[in-house]
Design a protein around this nucleic acid. Sequence first.
DNA 1: AATAAAATATACCATTTAGTATATTTGCAT
DNA 2: ATGCAAATATACTAAATGGTATATTTTATT
Lengths: 196, 196
Amino acid sequence: MTTKAERTKQFILETAAPIYNEKGISGVSIDDILEATQLTKGCIYGHFKGKDDLSEQVVEYSLNNMTAKINAVVSQETTARAKINAFIDFYKNPIATYISGGCPIFNTAVEVDDNFPEIKKKVAAKFITGQQGLSTILQQGIENGEFSSELNPARFAFKMFSAIEGGIIICRTIDSAQPMFELVNDLKKELDQYCV
Amino acid sequence: MTTKAERTKQFILETAAPIYNEKGISGVSIDDILEATQLTKGCIYGHFKGKDDLSEQVVEYSLNNMTAKINAVVSQETTARAKINAFIDFYKNPIATYISGGCPIFNTAVEVDDNFPEIKKKVAAKFITGQQGLSTILQQGIENGEFSSELNPARFAFKMFSAIEGGIIICRTIDSAQPMFELVNDLKKELDQYCV
DNA sequence: AATAAAATATACCATTTAGTATATTTGCAT
DNA sequence: ATGCAAATATACTAAATGGTATATTTTATT
C-alpha cells in the first residue's frame, strides 16, 4: 500500500516533469512547481532537499518514464524489424511528443552538457543503454536471418538515433512535422536495404 | 572607422557568446557577463536595453558567426562533393566545437523551443536557409553529373544535418568522439552510393 | 587644449528566488 | 475514537537578480 507521502511525491514528480521539459532546469523556479502542484514550500521541501535535489529527481523520473515507454512499445513486437519500426514510429511525431516539450533525454542532454555533471552522467547512461538495446535488436536480426551481416548494428543504431533526435529538434523549431515523416521513411528504407 | 562603443559592444557579444552557449539563456545572469567582460552595469545597459535584448543579440551573433564560418568552409570548395564533405568535416569533432559548448544553433533550438518565440524564429530561419543551402549544393551536384538523380537533395540534406547535430549531442554527453567519427564516415559512404 | 557628447562606473532599489523555522493539519496504528 | 507521528501550510529571512539614477571618465571634434 502506498502512503500519502509517496503519492504526493509521485504527484510532484509527474506534475513537474513537463514543466522541466519545457523550461529546462535553469528556467524552472520553485514557485513554478508550487503553482502547478498547488502545494506549499513546506510540502515540497519535506520531499526534496532543495532545488538541486528536486531537479535531479524530476529529470531522473522523466528519463526513466521515457525509456520505460520506449521499452514497452518495442518489446511488444516480436521480429527485429518490427521492433526497430516500433522505435522509429514512437518518435515520428515531433510536435505532439510523448511528454510535452520534446524528448526529455535530448532536452536534458543539451542543457546539462556543461553545467550539471551529476545529471549528465544519468543521461549518458540512458544513451549508452539505449544504444546497446538498439544494437542488440539489430544483431539478433542478423543472427536470425532478418538482416544481412553487412549491417553494422552499433553504427546503424547510432546513425538512426542521432538522425531521429536531431530531426525532432529541427522540426519542432521550424514548426513542421513533414521533414520528420520523410526522415522516418528514409530510415526504414535504409534498413530495407539490409533485409534478406 | 569603428567607434569605441561599437568595439565595446562587439567585445561584449564575443565574450558573452560562449557563456550563453554553455549555460543557456536561462542559465546566464547579468553578473556572469559583468564578470567575464570586467565591465559594469552602466556600460552593459548602455549597449543593451535589458537582459532579454542582450540575450537576443548574443544569440543572434552566435548564430550568424556559426553560419558564416560554415559558409566560409563550404564555399572554399569547388565540387558539390567537396562542399558536402567540408560541411560534414566542419562538424566532425563534437568535443572541441568551433564555439565552446557545442553547436549554438542546436543548443539554442532546444532551449527556445517552448519559451522564447522571437529567438525561435531566428533559429528556424537558420535551419531553413541551411537546409536550402545543402539542398542546392546537392541539386547542383546532380545537374553537373557528380551525383545520380536518384539522390533526393532535400531529404538527404535533412537526414545528414539531423544525424550530425543529434550525434554531436550524444557524443558530448557520453564524452566520446568515436561514434561521431564513424557517423561521419557512414554519411560520406552513403553519399558515395549516389556518385556516378 | 577646451568642450560637449558619448561611454562607462558607482551606488542604489525592487523583485524574485531559494531556503528555513515553526505552526497546523492530516493519516493511521492502536 | 484517540493520540502520535508524518505530512503539509504559514510566515518569514537572506541572497541573488534585473534594473535605474546619477556621477565620472573618456572620446573626438573644434
